[in-house]
Amino acid sequence: MYETNITIITMIHLLGFQSPQSITYYLFFLFFIVYCMTICGNLLIITLVSYSKNLHSPMYIFLTQLAVSDILLATDILPNMLHVVLVKVNRMSFVHCIAQFYFFCVSETLECLLLTVMSYDRYLAICKPLHYSSIMNTHICLKMVIVTWILSASVVLIHTLTITTLQFCGPNIIDHFFCDLAPLLELSCSDTTLVQLEFNLLGSLFVEIPFLIVIISYVYIIVTILQIPSVTGRKKAFSTCSSHLAVVSMYYGSLVCVYLVPTRRQAWNISKVLSLLYTVVTPLMNPIIYSLRNKELKKAAEQMINNFNKNSFKFILKVGI
């Protein structure tokens, strides 16, 4: 009996959503459509920015990286969740579980950092317009992008390696739809104090401090906009940052909801539903929010469609001739 208790876990069972069999295929279809829309929407953002020279500015470069982050998150979570919905209990190797946790944390950390530099970009554009081009040029923008990726990948790697030093001896069942930290640590028979302290420290550095920077940036932005004498000028200035503000509110709002929910076993069902907000809903809504509220993206989409139609028409004429 003692030897059974200290058996090292090699396989993980994800319970996912314990939904009635009658709605299984409806849930699968719903999440499949969400995944397809998420990938297509974010790829559209990347394509439009790459296609239109008018969009080769720091704000849209950051936006493409946000789209890449959303694709990474959706691909890390949703395909496996689709499998869980169908089979109810999904078996995955422990290495696969740790890898899923790593890429999940990388994409979330990257999103926090990108939203922060995007808020700084909007602060410079609205509050320091005369110095914007000298401070936020393409060269600086690319450096920021590289730093955010390196920071996200390296810091999360250190944290993940710390987790792998723990001993996981069971049970090997995770009552979630992906390998998150809290349910993962429940499988450990080691002291997890160091991991939890490390998580709290990294959370402060890469979630709370960036969020504080975002808030401070928008306080200055709002004050500056209110000082603009004309109503038209205020609307125009606010329109340049409204999409980003909506994304920030949705993303951090969902994180706050999840962390406010107690992680006791009886709260897992609520926690799973709330986790959908920042793992599934946010990557889906980001391109929708930016596409609907951004005139430059709409204009680039129209130009791309018109050019495609013209080229298709010319090709048909050549083939016909």
Rank of each mutant, 00 (worst) to 15 (best):
T38A: 00
L260F: 09
I288T: 07
H131T: 15
D180N: 11
L185T: 05
L212C: 05
S275Q: 15
V281M: 14
L284C: 11
Y123F: 12
M250F: 12
F313Q: 13
I221V: 12
L157V: 01
I23S: 07
Y252N: 03
I305H: 03
I270N: 09
C127T: 11
I45N: 03
M304S: 01
H159E: 08
V106I: 10
L27N: 09
W268C: 04
P229M: 04
D76E: 08
V319R: 08
S107I: 08
R91D: 15
V145G: 13
V195Q: 02
H244A: 04
I305P: 02
E302T: 11
S188V: 01
L27E: 10
M81L: 11
C257T: 12
I216S: 13
A153H: 03
H139I: 07
D121Q: 12
S152I: 10
L113F: 05
F238Q: 12
A301D: 01
E302D: 14
S312M: 07
V219T: 10
A153P: 02
S312N: 08
L201C: 04
P129R: 04
E108P: 04
C179E: 00
L72V: 01
I140L: 14
R265M: 13
P20E: 05
P79W: 00
L226R: 15
I173W: 11
D180Q: 09
V281F: 13
V156R: 03
I12V: 08
S19T: 14
Q100T: 07
S152K: 10
S243M: 07
I135G: 13
I46S: 00
L185P: 03
E108M: 10
S22W: 15
I146P: 06
C97I: 01
T109E: 10
A67S: 06
L14C: 03
F29W: 13
T47K: 04
F101H: 05
I46D: 01
V155I: 08
L142D: 14
I216W: 13
P171G: 09
V155H: 02
A74G: 02
V49S: 00
I135N: 14
G320F: 11
L297G: 00
L197N: 15
S119H: 05
A267Y: 04
I8T: 13
